[in-house]
Amino acid sequence: MSPPVIPPWPGRSPWPQHPERILVVKPCCLGDVLMATPALRALHLAFPQASIDVAVTAWAAPVLDGNPHLRRLIRYPDRATPQEILRLGLRLRRERYQLGIGLDRSPWVNLLLWLAGIPVRAGIDSRRRGLLLTHRARPRPGQHETELYLEVLEQLGIEQEGLHPEYEVPPGARAAVDRLLADLRIQDRASALVVVHPGGAVNPGATMLSKRWPPERYAELIDRLVVDHGVAVVLVGGSSDREAVEAVKQAARSSVYDLSERLALPELAALCAVAQLFVGNDSGASHLAAAVGTPTVTIFGPTSPLQYRPLGPRSRVCAPEASWHLPTGVDLRRSQREDPTLDIRQVTVDEVYGACAHLLGQAATRC
């Protein structure tokens, strides 16, 4: 594909059509950053000789470790304040970036690109926050985040190269998980490996436990999958997921393997990559599983799958019916937690089991 021709910044002389230094700003969080990886891929393929840096928080940075399209990661402040943004912007000014891409609605992101002295700045113009941008994409109701990020690039003439997210599993993590599974002899005792993440919804500065499907329903789902399909189930999660994991273990009649708090993100990705199925809530873990190609069932509510669902040919979503038909003008970034029709408890065990059984059947056919 020939490099795109980017129009000059109005009022300035034309800038190089083959930028050598590009900055992308995508602060948080795990799932959102993974949803931005198709844009990073498209940007690299459009400018294969350019050095691409990404400003990202320490919380979300691990999902970009080892990404083949990037040169380096730059620490974005965990708590954006005028002082922190000014300090980072002045430091980035010395890098002399020629193109800046903002993949976040935050006005701090657009301000940072301007403070960094980047002549061409493309980003999201939400609620008139794009005044400092030279190229703007406006979100549309019901638009998926990945499509929005790619639309930012379209303002520069850059074509998309697929919607699927990606994550590179480090070889060391894959080897560690292989040893762990061999020690537990999980794959010797079951027809398939199913990873279940019953927690999530806890990010820096934001906790939304209404995004968690009830643990007793996870337990019923696990029991049905074990009895009907002979699967082995591994529970995963971090320290903030301990309560959810314990509740599922207490309610389930079937034996499960508890690997919660034992896996770093690369090992979690490696485990998902060898599993035949992943089941979880609307969280970064579901996007990570989809990014490594695992058949994935994600349970949504009260947030909308229209905007945040994991993408990919083997990704399935179970969500309240009303969440697929939100009226034009509804701000899908807000929780809608007061609407009972969007409550995650509207999703039944039968619905989730059906999606899981379908994907397990596909996996068995491929084997």
Rank of each mutant, 00 (worst) to 15 (best):
S335T: 08
L30P: 03
H229G: 14
Q49I: 10
L184S: 14
E321K: 07
A269C: 06
P327Y: 11
D258C: 15
V352H: 08
W114S: 08
L43D: 01
A363C: 14
V177R: 02
A116Q: 01
H197R: 08
L111C: 02
R314F: 07
D223Q: 14
A355S: 09
Y308I: 09
A39G: 09
L86C: 08
D282G: 02
Q307V: 10
A173N: 04
R242E: 12
R105T: 14
S191C: 11
S255R: 12
A137E: 02
G237H: 02
R309C: 11
P305N: 15
D343E: 12
R94F: 05
S335Q: 05
R138E: 11
R253F: 12
V152P: 03
L209F: 04
P3Q: 11
L90T: 12
R75N: 10
I344Y: 06
I74Q: 01
L306E: 12
V54C: 13
T328N: 06
V196Q: 14
I344M: 07
Q98P: 04
Q336C: 06
W324F: 15
V347M: 06
P295G: 03
I101H: 01
A46N: 07
L112K: 00
L180P: 09
P198S: 00
D104G: 12
L360S: 13
V317S: 12
A364I: 15
R253N: 12
S239K: 05
P141M: 06
S106K: 07
C318V: 08
V33W: 06
V195M: 02
V177N: 04
D125P: 04
A36E: 04
